[in-house]
Amino acid sequence: MNELRTFAPTRVALTPRDERSIDSMARWMGLLGRFRVLAGGLLMLAVLGVALAYATTEALEGPAGPSDTTPPLVRLGALSTRALALLGTALMLLGGLVLRGGVLLDDAAEDFERIVHGSGPAERHLESALRRLRAFFRLELWLVALALGAALTLRAGWLR
């Protein structure tokens, strides 16, 4: 088996049915990539907007004095500005990871489409697609680990 691995060239012989499968996968991959770019960009924009609105309101109103009798519309409870900044940074990071994953997926989908439509050297496109897919799944692994860690921390906090 080892001799086969070392000396026999691995080949990928695609029939028209295989090409259709890969083409379909590439189209869905590209669609998911665009959705991810949209979701990541929207999340980052929303965090930036909230941070900008918060900073502008704080700068215009200043600290609340003892003469203020109107109760605030929204109470943030025990949340400090630092905790909010941390939350905003984490959400920005999450948005950036989702956006980068979307870009990688879209690029990998283009590589797969080039393989199927036969434009350029297929070997290079296949390697490039595999590399981008690997980078995407590495990012996905980070996201899953972060989500699991956050969820387990919250769950432990609730159980306490």
């Binding site: 691995t10 080949r11 029939t15 297929a122 070997e123």
Partner: peptide, 12 residues
């Protein structure tokens, strides 16, 4: 038969 035959290198 197969329309595409791609030789996968060791790197691939």
């Amino acid at each position: 038969g197969p329309t595409h035959r791609i030789a996968l290198s060791d790197r691939g």
